[in-house]
């Protein structure tokens, strides 16, 4: 439950005067959300945790420049998104690929086996999930960030452009390419009944 009681602005104002306790409350308030954002862009827990920490450190250093035009949460989202893009970019420069799935995670087949769906349907669901994860891991850093911000964070294209320092058209193209790549990844499954008939006709 939020410790700020809806009065985030006063905590931000106090943090700007050097009140460490106020900044601590802001950190505790936004950490979970930023972790989810960072994980979706970076694709692994380790980088996501680093991104969250670096985001708050950068925010603390830049508190004087925060101008209230965006909410504090949106401002943190902007810092975290750019930090995540930098991390993914650096990793790609180093020749690393984003792993679609931690090999230590439970096999998705095991998770889905507990559902009541028939075996073919479950297998198809597993394959859909696998293909989506793989397609996500192959997006460029900007495509991934723009898509995550639009799809999961529900930010507008104009907001995303401002956050990632991209033009509106470039932001749109990032999102279009991301969706197209995922659509292409799933297209081979059409022969196996994906999407389901109900979804096709709704």
């Amino acid at each position: 439950m939020s410790r700020m009681g809806g009065d985030e602005a006063s905590f931000v104002a106090r943090a700007r005067t050097g009140d460490a306790e106020a900044f601590r409350v802001l950190v505790e308030e936004h950490s979970h959300r930023l972790f989810r954002l960072a994980y979706r862009i970076a694709g692994n827990e380790q980088d996501a945790e680093d991104i969250v920490q670096e985001t708050f450190i950068k925010a603390h250093r830049s508190l004087a420049r925060y101008d209230d035009r965006a909410t504090f949460g949106a401002w943190l989202t902007r810092i975290a998104s750019n930090q995540a893009v930098d991390v993914v970019r650096a990793r790609r420069r180093g020749g690393e690929r984003v792993e679609a799935q931690d090999p230590d995670d439970p096999d998705p087949v095991d998770r889905l086996a507990e559902t009541d769906a028939g075996p073919e349907r479950r297998l198809l669901s597993v394959e859909v999930t696998r293909r989506v994860s793989h397609a996500m891991s192959r997006l460029t850093p900007n495509e991934r960030a723009a898509f995550v911000l639009r799809h999961h964070e529900e930010r507008s294209i104009a907001e995303i452009g401002a956050m990632l320092r991209l033009s509106e058209n470039a932001t749109k193209q990032c999102i279009f390419r991301a969706v197209r790549k995922m659509r292409e990844a799933l297209r081979p499954l059409a022969a196996h009944g994906w999407p389901e008939r109900g979804a096709r006709e709704s």
């Binding site: 859909v128 996500m136 995922m182 709704s202």
Partner: peptide, 26 residues
Amino acid sequence: AEIRATLEAVNAADAGEVPDRAAGYG
């Protein structure tokens, strides 16, 4: 419909993908 199903598949894939952090993570 295919685009909608693709985006729903993204949600389904995401649901089990993002690991939880403990309540004391902040």
